[in-house]
Write a protein that binds this DNA or RNA. Structure first.
Length: 133
DNA sequence: GCCAACGTTGGC
DNA sequence: GCCAACGTTGGC
């Protein structure tokens, strides 16, 4: 199963919202590059859930979710269904990811404004080594 | 609050 | 079709 990462502004829609709703349609994405990523999603794929910067907290990956539908078009946007799975055992910050210098070529580091992306296998391994996943 | 990155718009 | 102006996003 592939891993993806989605970004959310927790003041608009947080991982806790998804936890409460259990599942939801992810229809926040407006960007063509991100739409191409969504089109490659399949039911059962894993999704890392990322919170962007707020006044209270630095950007962090907070949880694990999964894709529960085929991608589809809804009012011109590409959307998919997402279900809550679990919180990471501890949040992993963008700062730590950058400091490792292991993922300098990853879109999370290189392309701040991309909100939906693939996740390299090495990053999953790194999360597991650190006991976060 | 600032600014860099970047997507979009509109004039030519 | 190019590009300057402008708006938005997201990290710091």
């Amino acid at each position: 199963m592939a891993f993806f990462l989605v970004k959310a502004d927790p003041e608009r829609y947080s991982f806790e919202n998804l936890e409460r709703n259990k599942n939801d349609t992810w229809d926040w994405v407006d960007n063509h590059q991100a739409w191409r990523v969504i089109q490659s999603m399949r039911p059962g794929d894993n999704v890392l859930f990322y919170h962007t910067t707020t006044s209270r907290s630095e950007p962090v990956i907070v949880g694990l979710a999964c894709v529960t539908s085929e991608p589809r078009q809804e009012s011109g946007k590409w959307v998919f269904d997402i279900a809550f799975e679990r919180h990471l055992s501890h949040p992993v910050s963008l700062r730590e990811i950058k400091e490792s210098h292991l993922f300098d070529n990853w879109a999370l580091v290189r392309q701040a404004r991309l909100s939906t992306m693939n996740v390299p296998d090495e990053f999953i391994g790194w999360l597991k080594e650190r006991g976060a996943l």
